[in-house]
Nucleic acid binder design. Structure first.
Lengths: 198, 198
DNA sequence: TCCAGAATCTGGACACTGCCCACATGCGTC
DNA sequence: GACGCATGTGGGCAGTGTCCAGATTCTGGA
């Protein structure tokens, strides 16, 4: 029931998504720490108080942005999964997934960062929208991990998947922090996931 | 040449370290994002402008805190290295290092976070105090990695070390973000560093 | 010893922020 | 058509980082 915003209507009609879009766009270049509700409101062309009628407070908007970012990250992983060459090894597939993860972080560092900020998403208590996204990411990683180590016990598979997530995530963070380049991340994944490295 | 601060001297005598200490202490519980120069100044008992005579701006103080935190993290790794059982396997040693890394992050999440915030430490251009700390951490990890894969080429060793750092770092971040518990991190390290997992 | 300049500290000010309040507007429903 | 509520507005408050001018103290050279 979107009311078209013709002219200078007093009521915007669809301000909530407009604010989200404006903020999400600002998140291309601005860290979520520096995101200001007032600037977002100005960008959307409304008063500095309008956002409070759609988001309880600043953190609520950041939560929403973190969900949208996680959804984008999941899409990147799904795309990597879909474009997998059926001939490629299980290890190459896992590396491709990891590379997609790192690439998203490198391309949208501020969006990536808001996903994992404990000040935004309360640790251990993900929102109803966030929880399935997290599960989906874990499922993708676990599936790819199982393909590498098919004969392993369930508990080991879980531990190994956690390790894979950690490795991929850590390389992404190190890239964002500037300690390594994206070019260094891929051979690191290759080396780490090579069981014959001994 | 520290002037003792007897009574209400106009000049503090050693305000710079006092400010650092106060801020570092606040960093036990408060995120560096929420650290306020004015609160730090109040804690140290000086006016809100005194810090500007010792730190150019807020970021300069955060830089200093990030160096102190990195030094603490390095100490944790060195302690783990020193207390290594000579009988333990190379793999167990690497797991112990990783566990120490994760434990520091879990115990001082706010200090850990300031280390890797690109808004604090300019990516790719570490300060003169930070650079050797980073190198030392890398050296420790590389040494332990080489012990696991002694016959590997130099380039592979570098890639593998990057992967190990990423894994350890990512698990630490996931713990801080609340996605996994410290208890889950250790078996993940064990599984990941086990070359016979296939 | 004295004094000028540098270092340090202070209070005031400005622009900005998140958030609360009271009030204005207009849509949807009876 | 009128009432009610969601949605918009502006004003205000406390807090922040940073700049400026002035006060105080330290220091090194005559």
């Amino acid at each position: 029931m979107l009311v078209s915003r013709s002219g200078d209507a007093y009521h915007h009609g669809s301000l909530k998504p407009a604010l989200e879009d404006a903020a999400f766009e600002l998140l291309r270049t601005t860290g979520h720490t520096d995101l200001s509700l007032r600037e977002i409101a100005r960008t959307a062309g409304v008063s500095h108080n309008a956002p409070y009628h759609h988001f309880g407070d600043r953190t609520a908007l950041l939560k929403r942005l973190s969900e949208r970012s996680m959804s984008e990250l999941l899409d990147a992983l799904l795309a990597a999964q879909a474009s997998a060459d059926p001939e490629q090894s299980a290890r190459a597939h896992l590396v491709a997934l990891g590379t997609a993860y790192v690439r998203y972080a490198a391309e949208y560092p501020e969006r990536f960062r808001v996903i994992y900020d404990p000040a935004v998403c309360v640790p251990g208590a993900p929102s109803a929208e966030m929880a399935p996204l997290i599960s989906a990411v874990e499922k993708i990683l676990m599936h790819a991990t199982k393909a590498i180590s098919p004969s392993v016990s369930d508990t080991t598979l879980v531990a190994l998947t956690t390790g894979v997530w950690g490795a991929v995530h850590g390389l992404a963070e190190l890239v964002i922090a500037g300690h390594i380049t994206p070019k260094q991340a891929e051979p690191a994944l290759v080396a780490l996931f090579d069981p014959s490295r001994i």
